[in-house]
């Protein structure tokens, strides 16, 4: 009887499809789909990165013409509108960022914009901020969507073809931010590794053309780079030193390494046609030197964290 039963089981097993049964597969996951900031993708160098010839000294601006506002001038139009429209950043700590506690925008660049508003309205709150990504700065100025751009805006010949700049209000250079404890000491050690920068920034172009051949990775905002670093999705980020200082201030496990790779003079961007506004903003910058407000703002946002004191750069004018 028992033998019959065994035979029967064997026969059933043979006729069942697939031979002896196997346990149902476990839901095994071997790779995860990591979250990405919006617009995060492999980076492409902006345009050529080469300086167009015949631009002379790009940092030479127009000589200031005083703080008076003539009827019919660009400043008069802004005054009639009742507010200055400033293109800024809300994601770059220390320069232009949203204070999560107060919902207000703050930073060194924001102070620059406020000073311009104060010169026009005698009230630095008459500003409408319009957040721009690096990529959109020229477009916003060319379309007249904003009156000024104060957003870690490097003056160069390529940009001067589309927009005008004020005199230089800050000069810095590009460095590299890496994890503390990593063996990376400069861009030279980043060959074949992902290095993050903002889309449309000069920093991204520098990464793309660096001889060590790091892999450029582009995002929409500087803080997205830090997110990617914290999540281990990129090895480093590289941009102007004070931006990196702002990142390091938010994360004690990262450090800034390597020499300054470039020289980045920051200016306030102004639509190309508005030469009266360029002169006016340069007058504002002169006033800031005089009344110490530049120094105050620099000391508040940059000096303490960068550990480096500085004074307002001496302006250069074309005539």
């Amino acid at each position: 009887m028992k033998r019959v039963a065994l035979l029967l089981v064997a026969a059933l097993a043979l006729t069942a499809c697939g031979g002896p049964g196997r346990p149902v597969d476990l839901a095994v996951v071997t790779a995860v789909d990591r979250p990405q900031p919006d617009g995060s993708k492999p980076g492409e160098a902006g345009a050529t990165g080469a300086q167009p010839s015949g631009c002379g000294d790009p940092t030479a601006s127009l000589r200031p013409g005083g703080l008076g506002i003539a009827a019919g001038s660009t400043m008069a139009k802004i005054r009639d509108r009742g507010r200055l429209i400033a293109g800024v950043d809300q994601n770059t700590y220390l320069f232009g960022f949203r204070n999560p506690a107060t919902n207000n925008l703050e930073g060194f660049d924001i102070d620059m914009a406020k000073q311009v508003a104060k010169a026009i309205f005698n009230d630095d709150s008459k500003i409408q901020y319009k957040v721009l990504t690096s990529r959109d700065r020229e477009k916003a100025l060319a379309n007249g969507e904003v009156d000024i751009v104060a957003r870690t805006y490097t003056i160069n010949c390529e940009r001067l073809q589309q927009v005008s700049f004020s005199a230089v209000y800050y000069t810095t250079g590009q460095r590299v931010l890496v994890q503390k404890g990593s063996s990376i000491n400069s861009m030279d050690d980043l060959g074949g590794k992902k290095v993050c920068a903002n889309v449309g920034s000069t920093s991204l172009t520098q990464i793309a053309k660096h001889p060590a051949k790091p892999v450029p990775w582009s995002v929409l905002n500087w803080s997205d780079c830090l997110v990617l670093m914290q999540q281990g999705q990129v090895a480093a980020m590289s941009t102007d030193e004070p931006i990196l200082v702002g990142m390091a201030a938010q994360d004690p496990t990262v450090r800034i390494v390597g020499p300054k790779l470039t020289e980045e003079p920051y200016g306030i961007g102004i639509p190309k046609a508005n030469t009266d506004m360029v002169k006016f903003v340069n007058a504002v910058l002169e006033r800031m030197r005089g009344d110490g407000s530049w120094q105050q703002s620099y000391d508040r946002w940059v000096a303490s964290r960068l550990g480096e004191s500085a004074t307002q750069p001496t302006p250069k004018y074309r005539d």
């Binding site: 979250p35 990405q36 900031p37 919006d38 809300q90 994601n91 770059t92 700590y93 960022f97 949203r98 204070n99 999560p100 506690a101 905002n221 803080s223 997205d224 830090l226 997110v227 990142m247 938010q250 994360d251």
Partner: peptide, 20 residues
């Protein structure tokens, strides 16, 4: 957490979450 520390990187995490 970052927002409570007053750090703007909190906004970056929020954007990443929203994108996801």
């Amino acid at each position: 957490t970052n927002n409570r520390f007053g750090l703007p990187i909190g906004a970056a995490y929020l954007r990443e979450a929203s994108t996801l």
